[in-house]
């Protein structure tokens, strides 16, 4: 019986830049920041109200998991905005939208009313896109 999800990966182009984006712009908190080797660190962030759920800001380079070619292809795909990663919910979408815009977050779509709530789309600093939603 599966019960919970604790970790998910987001591929990012640069971990320092992603850290700045997810923490200083989106307002998430660092959970673990541990150096692994000269190229990579284990870097996870979490939302304020979900203890135990960590988003792993994963660097893309050659490893057991990716050949050099795969890593390059993956970087290109991320840059192109191929991956829609998830939905962040908020207490008030208009206030959150205003704040994130003030901090320079790029929105693909402004808040729009849908039957389930109000939803906007934004990109992270790598090109991954998310929904920002206030559900009914």
């Amino acid at each position: 019986m599966i019960t919970r999800m604790t970790h998910m990966n987001i591929y990012v182009l640069d971990q320092d830049s992603a850290l700045d984006f997810y923490v200083n712009k989106l307002g998430l908190k660092v959970v673990i920041d541990a150096p692994m080797n000269k190229d990579a660190r284990w870097l996870t962030v979490g939302t304020p109200e979900q203890p135990g759920f960590e988003i792993n800001l994963t660097p893309i380079h050659e490893s057991l998991l990716h050949s050099k070619d795969t890593a390059e292809a993956l970087r290109d795909l991320v840059k192109k905005g191929t991956f829609g990663v998830g939905i962040f919910t908020c207490t008030d979408i208009f206030a959150t939208y205003e704040e994130l815009q003030a901090k320079g977050v790029e929105f693909i779509k402004p808040p729009t009313k849908e039957f389930y709530g109000t939803e906007a789309l934004f990109k992270d600093d790598s090109g991954n896109w998310f929904s920002l939603a206030q559900l009914n």
């Binding site: 541990a34 692994m36 284990w42 998991l65």
Partner: peptide, 14 residues
């Protein structure tokens, strides 16, 4: 550092 991270990931990344 390996005491604070899940080893499934650590393995995949070498």
């Amino acid at each position: 550092p390996l005491t604070v991270i899940p080893h499934c990931f650590a393995y995949q990344y070498g």
